[in-house]
Nucleic acid binder design. Structure first.
Length: 583
DNA sequence: GCCGTTTTCGGCCCGACTGTTTTCAGTCG
């Protein structure tokens, strides 16, 4: 018999379970049940494999945070396309109430209050009620609470969502110039998802080491770009800037900076793990100190001291997502992760032959300045009209120029002639095989027709991977942060093809891409696919974006062994020659 | 609802800030 099967991505499942959690919270369900749904949702988002495949294998409960009850719900969704429990819940608690939870200072209790007392079921109705001053007379409410809710709704109208990592770093650096110079400030560090190098950042978290916090807090809340002070105190203040960014500043004395930085870096789930671990050592961990049961404190100046006190090695911030890092640290199986210094080649950049700003010689000198040993010039193929791609006839002239520049460089840098060849809408490549064959290295990339149906766009990528001359797939999904989704790819099929053909998948280091992302990178590496980290530089300063790619790789648990740009020359040339293409 | 170097039941992290309160609940990270 044939059984119908409905398709849900991990993110779609996660959204459903997040919604269930929030609706139950408004309903007043016990908190641990809610946390369990949230945990399962987060776990699905970062699992790396499609839950649907796991379901076909009958192993849903192997997904962390998924037990019997949630596995049954996932099964019902794949089997019937619906979830009765969810539908009944939505019938009971209006789903529009979830919008209310986006308003700062408005949580499930107040959402339930507004719904029960005033019949409010969505954000529009809440705004009307607030403007009509209907909220302030409710129990536990007052004029100030109502004004805060109005301000929170206005902030939602202003905000554009999460900030891309690159923009967050630039803004942090601007703030750091001012805050770092406040008298008495010993250290200033980014914290939160910024320090963990997530691809997008919600609020900007900043931590200062200072004995007296008054001056820096004053400087912070009176910054000229601040349009709203959300909260202010001695250890924590929070503001909104005119560019829609929200930031919080924590201040702690230098002798307690280690616990404070650990705390402010998060993630929340990682911190919960550490506190559980602390309790097993008879200690209570907070941002201030490790406290013994008799109340005495262990102060930590550095994060290393915190982790050491808990009996585990320091864990890099990028790892702190509760994806098994604490367990790995406990069992001494935390590997040494790739770092910026390991990277000795750039395999994806552009010159004035297409849309780059530097000549090949200038790009080479910029690469040498950054300590690189190998540089692949990979200008666009002609098909990408907007980028002024090379025609086939141009390639020989470009080769001559590369040879000339190579002669000038001598042994300081090895140049490769490559191409970022377009994967066309019909799945063919922009250059014929006999042209690709003459190149030292070939990157194939999708830039157009990203919205094709899943099956078609996946097949385009698989075709490219199976071409005997293709070495690397550039920015595989084509996503642009924060808002342009990548192509709807069957990543398991892409990974399988890449593994079979020993084709490398790129982590594009440009913070507008970070594609592959951390979760996919981890999965790809587990499948023995060689990963490369490239800046896709179009200018000299683009080469300095490399650290974003390296951090993404660390978030994906990648070691130098898994990252091609960190390989010794011989191992790299062996890989490049795996099909006998170049000298 | 999940989970197990205190295991199949009984736990499940910690504190700051705010507003409405006369001691605490709600929210947030």
């Amino acid at each position: 018999m044939t059984q119908a099967e409905y398709h849900f991505t991990n993110n779609q499942l996660a959204d459903i379970f997040d919604n269930i959690g929030s609706l139950l919270e408004i309903k007043g369900e016990v908190i641990y049940k809610i946390l369990a749904y949230r945990k399962a949702a987060e776990s699905l988002r970062t699992f790396g494999r499609e839950a649907q495949d796991v379901w076909r294998e009958g192993k849903l409960m192997g997904i962390p945070g998924v037990g019997k009850a949630i596995a049954e719900k996932i099964d019902e969704l794949f089997t019937t396309g619906k979830l009765e429990f969810y539908e009944k819940l939505v019938h009971e608690v209006p789903i529009g109430l979830l919008e209310l939870l986006q308003v700062s200072d408005l949580g499930p209790k107040k959402a339930a209050l507004f719904w029960n007392q005033l019949g409010i079921t969505n954000l529009v109705e809440l705004e009307q009620a607030a403007n009509a001053k209907k909220l302030q007379s409710l129990p536990g409410m007052g004029e100030k609470s109502e004004a805060k809710i109005i301000a929170g709704i206005q902030a939602i109208h202003r905000r554009s969502g999460r900030i891309p990592l690159g923009k967050a770093w630039l803004f942090y650096n601007e703030l750091a110039k001012i805050l770092g110079n406040v008298p008495g400030v010993v250290r200033l560090e980014p914290a939160g998802s910024l320090r963990r190098m997530r691809s997008t950042v919600g609020d900007l978290d900043i931590l200062a080491a200072v004995s007296d916090s008054e001056a820096i807090m004053e400087e912070f809340i009176h910054h000229p770009q601040v349009i709203r002070v959300i909260g202010q105190g001695q250890t924590k203040s929070s503001v909104e800037f005119d560019n829609g960014v929200r930031a919080q500043l924590w201040a702690h004395p230098p002798e307690r900076f280690g616990t404070a930085l650990q705390y402010a870096t998060g993630s929340k789930d990682h911190n919960v793990r550490l506190r559980e671990l602390a309790l097993k050592h008879g200690l209570s961990l907070s941002e201030h100190a490790l406290a013994r049961t008799d109340g005495s404190e262990i102060l930590c100046k550095t994060e290393e001291e915190v982790y050491t006190a808990l009996g585990i090695p320091w864990i890099p911030p990028e790892l702190r997502e509760d994806r098994g890092e604490v367990q790995a640290a406990l069992s001494s199986s935390l590997p040494t992760f790739v770092k910026l210094d390991d990277i000795c080649m750039e395999l994806h950049c552009h010159s004035t032959w297409s849309d780059g700003r530097l000549t090949i010689y200038e790009m080479a000198e910029a690469a040498i300045k950054r300590g690189l040993k190998i540089l692949a010039i990979t200008d666009h193929s002609g098909g990408l009209g907007v980028a002024g791609g090379l025609k086939i006839d141009d390639l020989q002239a470009q080769r001559t120029e590369i040879d000339n520049v190579q002669a000038q460089l001598g042994s300081r840098l090895k140049l490769l002639q490559g191409s970022e060849v377009e994967i066309l809408a019909d799945g063919s490549l922009d250059f014929p095989d006999e042209v690709l064959q003459k190149l030292d290295i070939v990157i194939a990339s999708l830039h157009s027709s990203l919205r094709q149906p899943r099956e078609k766009v996946t097949q385009r990528l698989v075709n490219a991977i199976q071409n005997p001359h293709v070495d690397i797939i550039g920015h595989p999904t084509g996503r642009i942060l924060p808002d342009r989704e990548g192509a709807d790819l069957d990543m398991d099929a892409v990974f399988q093809a890449a593994a079979n053909n020993s084709v490398s998948l790129e982590i594009n280091a440009n913070p507008a891409r970070l594609d592959l992302d951390d979760v996919y990178a981890r999965r790809a590496a587990e499948m023995q696919i060689p990963i490369c980290i490239n800046t896709d530089a179009h200018s000299e300063s683009d080469l300095d974006l490399l650290h974003f790619g390296v951090s993404t790789a660390r978030r994906g648990w990648l070691t130098p062994d898994m990252v091609m740009n960190a390989w010794a020359g011989e191992r790299f040339s062996n890989w490049l020659n795996r099909k006998g293409i170049i000298e």
